[in-house]
Simulated assay, not measured.
Amino acid sequence: MTTTNPTEPSELKTIGLTPFIYCSNQPLFHVTRDVPLGDALAMASDFLFLAKELTRDAAFNRDTDRHIWAAHYLTAMSKAVVDDVVKVLERPAATNTEPKK
């Protein structure tokens, strides 16, 4: 019987323990669990790219702060995703209780 090792990078998924965007000292959102880490990191990268573009635009358009707030929320989401991925990668590997053959 062939079993997959859940600690293989392609099998790892988010654990959904990381909150972000707080209201009244309570997290309004959190990272969703069971998203493949590669997909989660790709999304964080997209969020950071958009935040970078918005902050660049904000540097040239000083009439409004809407770009800054959008960038703020995108970076908060990105940080939460990366933090959740780090939690998965840093947790000790589950021990296999099955006898080896």
Rank of each mutant, 00 (worst) to 15 (best):
F29D: 00
E8M: 12
H67D: 06
T95D: 04
K100S: 12
A70D: 00
R62T: 13
G16C: 07
P6L: 05
A93S: 09
P9F: 09
V31L: 08
K101T: 10
P99K: 11
R62P: 05
Y73P: 04
T4Y: 12
L54S: 03
V82T: 11
N25V: 05
S10W: 13
T3G: 05
I68H: 06
D34V: 01
E53P: 02
D63A: 10
V85A: 09
L12V: 06
K101N: 11
H72N: 09
S78L: 05
N61P: 05
G38P: 04
A44N: 03
L74A: 00
T55Q: 05
P6H: 03
N5D: 11
V81S: 00
D84C: 09
E98K: 11
G16A: 01
K100Q: 15
T18C: 02
A59N: 15
V35C: 04
A76C: 01
T64G: 00
D39L: 10
D39T: 15
P92E: 10
F47C: 09
K13V: 14
M77E: 02
A80F: 01
I21T: 09
V35M: 04
M77G: 06
T32R: 15
F20Y: 13
T95V: 08
A93H: 12
P9S: 14
V31R: 00
Y73T: 01
T18L: 04
T32L: 09
L74N: 04
L28P: 01
D65A: 02
A44I: 00
T64A: 03
G16W: 01
P19I: 00
D57S: 09
E98Y: 12
L37N: 10
D83K: 07
G38E: 04
N5K: 03
T14F: 03
L50E: 12
D34Y: 10
Y22A: 08
P19R: 03
A51R: 01
D84H: 04
I21S: 15
V35R: 02
T4E: 04
S10T: 07
D84A: 10
D34P: 03
V85R: 00
L37A: 05
K101G: 06
M43P: 02
A80V: 02
P27M: 03
H67T: 00
V81A: 05
A59S: 06
T18K: 05
A42E: 10
D57C: 04
D63L: 08
T64Q: 07
E8I: 13
I68C: 01
P92G: 11
K13E: 10
V31T: 02
P92C: 05
A58F: 00
T2I: 11
M77K: 08
T95W: 14
M43W: 11
S24I: 13
G38M: 07
M1I: 11
K87E: 08
K101I: 08
T2H: 14
K52I: 07
W69R: 14
P19F: 09
T7H: 14
N25Q: 07
A76D: 12
S45C: 09
L54E: 02
A70Y: 02
E11I: 08
P36Y: 06
H67S: 06
D46R: 13
K79T: 12
R91A: 10
R66Y: 05
I15A: 07
I21A: 11
R66W: 08
T18Y: 07
M1L: 08
D84Y: 02
G16H: 03
T75I: 10
I15V: 13
